[in-house]
Design a protein around this nucleic acid. Structure first.
Lengths: 364, 364
DNA sequence: GTGAAAGCGCTAACAG
DNA sequence: CTGTTAGCGCTTTCAC
């Protein structure tokens, strides 16, 4: 917009000196100047020196738009995550940003809010920006219009968190949702719990929640216990207390809750407290995700820990490998990457209360 | 990379049909086809119709790179935030994304981690992408190399959270940090507290923390109380318990803590609990930020609530106004926007304990 | 090693 | 209203 000061008097309207100006100042051709930055090996050292000097003297700043357009590849990765409000994805973003920028790639972030309509819009937005590929997390990979579209158009992408099925052709980086959930529930069982209820958010919409529920079933059955149906809590607000109360006042009240994500778990712990229960003395709570916040709380949140930052970084890594394979087809090997998970069994998990189940207090 | 199917047999190597193809198919000139999308009013309806049809038939997807390069304005906003790991900025991002995309602008997000060196790199990155302007939060606006650079280059930008001084030429959107902090501390005083300590993270590095501390001093002095020096906790980990213990074991132990941000407050509450104190029965804690998580906890986090999402949206709004003013100079009026704050005085705040100060338990 | 020239896809004068 | 034309800044054959 505003004109800029030109030391040599040659005023330019636009946004600063271009490669042409640099070439001129260094008394080389445009082509050579370009090569100094793109293919340094192709140019004599002394020449490169002159060009660099000229560039520095003129405060030359390469216009990425030009190179991206011309090169027909933007070195940009589109990222679509459900929301930044869940720390899981915020932590993941850190990994994505580090990995991408380190590799000289640029990023374009959009959030979908788990809304299929917005997913389509945002993906279209990314496509118009001509991203070379995408890293994304969708609500349910198995029935995702947007993924189908990407497949049809041959756009390289890798899923983060969504765990592609063994027979899927899709690429994904995640933990073993089912297996890790099973591990978590087994820890609960090992602590002495028998009546364990799974709490989930929008259960039907989330493939991960379903996979984790399956893991819960595995663990229960492996120990001769009968799985309960999932308790689906639509929101993360305190209004969930009512549904929780119904659970804990039942005769066969659960002694432990397994929440399919940490945010939910934190809310459940608070609700339980409001209902007069102590966590973990009266009731245990296990989360899933391993967000940093969980370690800060008191009691610390017991949870299945995913390597969130690493999931992001690895997803970028896989995508880059694909992009650089340049065969147009993704490397066949290892479509689905399963990262190791960990268990944090502490704080919000304890043995179930002895013979006497404490009477929940009525809230005032 | 991969070739795409062309219905009419004219195979194209690149990434799909271009405007030229559409123009051809619609039997109009390239210029007309372009106008249909950029200046619909300039073209006859029937013609526009033909073009739209052709575009749809060919699955035409405009290449934003082309228009951005040619138009010499990218309609892109660069966003630099300290981190997504703090919910404050995640909430802010929501506002930014909504406002920008609604206005037809694209975004490019980077995080600085409060690191000045990274700030420079990331800003350079944004500049190379030729963003039209920026929305950013820096550690300390008063001594920010990156802001000075932006000023020198005449890049339009508006600060979010950083509150530009009255005599500054900079644009900012924030709450009144000092005044709102004062309000919060007065609520503490109104609840009966006299000995109040301010807890902060990297205090010297954050202009907001300093402003909020000043607000604390205002409140204390207004009530004839003597402000304590700030208790600076470098990290958000549990190791802070030691410093907190020193505070609460002192003879004139504070009855309330004012934390300069919510994340810190949550950590402090946990640490206090670990030290055997009940919040708010034994000690009160006031936060600052108003992140959603605070309402989920038990007890709910008392805090000074900023309109985080709105701060982001308004910052974009101000930047857009600036960009559209097109005079090259920012609209002189209202450089600094102060958004209203709110107080959430509940949960973690109560009257100080009666005559007897509870003895903190030693941790096992 | 280096230079000349041809565009990437699109917009914006300028004519008609 | 519509078409012709000239690039935006950069990379990349193709010669030399």
């Amino acid at each position: 917009m505003t004109g800029r000061h030109m030391p040599d008097g040659k005023a330019k309207a636009g946004s600063g000196p271009t490669l042409v100006d640099v070439a001129q100042a260094a008394r080389v051709s445009l082509a050579t100047a370009s090569r100094v930055f793109s293919h340094p090996a192709m140019v004599r050292d002394s020449t490169a020196q002159r060009v660099h000097e000229a560039a520095r003297r003129l405060d030359f700043r390469p216009n990425l738009l030009g190179s991206k357009l011309r090169a027909q590849q933007t070195r940009m990765i589109g990222v679509m995550l459900p929301t930044m409000d869940n720390a899981v994805f915020a932590e993941c973003w850190r990994g994505i940003e580090e990995a991408a920028l380190a590799a000289g790639y640029s990023l374009m972030l959009v959030t979908s809010g788990y809304d299929p309509k917005r997913e389509r819009e945002r993906v279209e937005y990314l496509l118009r920006h001509r991203v070379d590929g995408m890293v994304l997390t969708v609500a349910d990979a198995a029935r995702s219009a947007v993924l189908d579209q990407l497949d049809a158009e041959g756009v390289p992408y890798v899923l983060a968190y969504n765990q592609a099925g063994a027979r899927s052709r899709r690429h994904s980086v995640s933990v073993d949702n089912r297996g890790s959930a099973c591990d978590g529930v087994e820890a609960l069982i090992a602590a002495g719990h028998r009546r364990i209820v799974v709490v989930s958010g929008a259960f039907v919409a989330s493939d991960r929640a379903r996979q984790r529920y399956a893991g819960y079933q595995d663990a229960m059955r492996a120990h001769g216990l009968v799985p309960s149906p999932v308790l689906s809590l639509p929101s993360h607000t305190a209004s969930n207390a009512a549904q929780l109360r119904a659970q804990i006042e039942a005769d066969d009240a659960p002694t432990a809750f397994f929440c399919t994500n940490d945010l939910l778990a934190i809310g459940v712990i608070s609700d339980l407290r409001r209902l007069g229960l102590r966590v973990p003395a009266d009731v245990s709570v296990l989360g899933y995700d391993g967000i940093a916040l969980g370690t800060v709380m008191e009691p610390a949140l017991a949870t299945v820990v995913q390597p969130n930052t690493d999931i992001g970084a690895r997803a970028v890594g896989r995508l880059l490998a694909w992009l650089h394979a340049a065969t147009g087809e993704a490397p066949a090997a290892a479509r689905v990457t399963l990262l190791p998970h960990a268990l944090r069994v502490s704080g919000s998990i304890a043995a179930p209360p002895g013979g006497i189940r404490p009477r929940p207090l009525r809230s005032p």
